[in-house]
Amino acid sequence: MTRSRTPTLTDSTIPDAAAPPADDWGPFTGLPGHPLMWVLIGSELLVFGAALLGLLGGRIADPVGFRLAQDHLDRLAGGVNTLVLLTSGLFVAIAVVRAKAARVAATRGWLAASAGLGLMFLAVKAVEYATEIGAGWGLDSGGFITLYFLITGFHALHVVMGLIILGIVARWPTAGNVATGAAFWHMVDLVWLLVFPVVYLVR
């Protein structure tokens, strides 16, 4: 007489009628790219939104100090970098169109062009930082300057991460991978569209 084996949690053959299909992400289904990327996008927008609210809240406490420090920022460089990121976003969006048409070489070409502009963004930011650090400012300067370095530095780290992700999806350029990588890159773009006016121009 044989005894039936007790199912275990690791038994992949056990049917689970209550479990949704693997590709059912509920309200996230149908969003471009991987649904978890949208969780990240929402989270990042909340974090940067809170940081920008904190910056303007701090300005109320010390309007003169903030104004004097903010006047030393290179606002033109910030504007140029906005145009650089928007153009980079255009190139990534075109890469998504090409990836959907299974045009691998064109997809990689547009991703590379976008990454090149991402590097240009970082180069402009590095020149800005060099000027500001040369003037004696740093992360520990306090007030506006500390918040400026934290917010723009955190954003710059996201640009670096975005460049790595673009490199990965260029290596494996399926339509889904490219759409997911593009979503991250556009999130970096979206954040800057709010950071630039609030940090550089509101005064």
Binding site: R75, L76, G79, L83, L86, T87, G89, A93, V97
Partner: peptide, 27 residues
């Protein structure tokens, strides 16, 4: 996408002008 990019660029230039990107004056 190109039309949208042109609109985004025009809005950025508008932002820079309205926000006094080349002027020290208060906004």
């Amino acid at each position: 996408l190109l039309i949208v990019w042109a609109a985004l660029s025009a809005l950025t230039v508008t932002t820079m002008i309205s926000g006094g990107a080349t002027s020290p004056a208060r906004v």
